[in-house]
Amino acid sequence: MEYIIEAENLNVYFDELHILKGVSLKIPKNTVTALIGPSGCGKSTFIRTLNRMNDLISTFRMDGTVLLDGEDIYNPKVDVVDLRKRVGMVFQKPNPFPKSIFDNVAYGLRVHGINDKDILEHKVEEALKGAALWDEVENILDKSAMGLSGGQQQRLCIARTIAVEPEVILMDEPCSALDPISTTKIEDLIHKLKKDYTIIIVTHNMQQATRVSKYAAFFLHGEIVENGRTEQIFLEPCDQRTEDYITGRFG
């Protein structure tokens, strides 16, 4: 199997707090991997090490390695800006910019130096189609993104992310602020996107994990208890703690 991300023996600390404890995980290419586990177990911290968003927190320290296509992303020679272009991120709460719908999707492209109007228009349309939002916003591209519904805003954030053509998309509980219908739309979208992208999704929703992912990893207290194919984790977990969690005995 081809792996796009290989995290090896990751330890993450915020001040004296030891958040991730020797986490190793390989993420297969062009699939959806779900990270599950109770709140505070380190799932979000883990995905934030993959695009180096934790670097923004002054108390962050880590050791271990993260390879993207075989390259160490914490190598001092690596350009963080470049890395984040390759590893996109969708946040828990939809966070479109207070700009027009068009400008939101064009933002990443412009930041990376694309200013040609025709190319921008073409790529924005592609991205909005890719995020299954085009039909709804086709005629209001110049309107503020803040006027969209929560579900539309989240799909816009996905469009904004795929516009810069990343290899990996990190999703940090992307549906937790959305209603069930919007959630279904996002899940359908994830199925569509996995052909072209590797998706890592943090979720608290067990059903969602089984619906969207092929692989899953169960985090507990900063460690990975168990990982493997999603149906194996859910149907015949090897570890008692995994079984307890997915059957709702704690968490």
């Binding site: 968003m53 991120m89 966070n95 910019f97 207070p98 933002y107 990443g108 930041v111 992310t161």
Partner: peptide
């Protein structure tokens, strides 16, 4: 909202791009 800046940085924008294109206009 701090989430605007996070969204911008996560797209690979630099700090200055984030400040000038997102934070200041907002």
């Amino acid at each position: 909202n701090k989430s605007y800046a996070q969204g911008s940085l996560a797209l690979g924008a630099t700090k200055w791009q984030t400040v000038s294109k997102v934070v200041i206009p907002a």
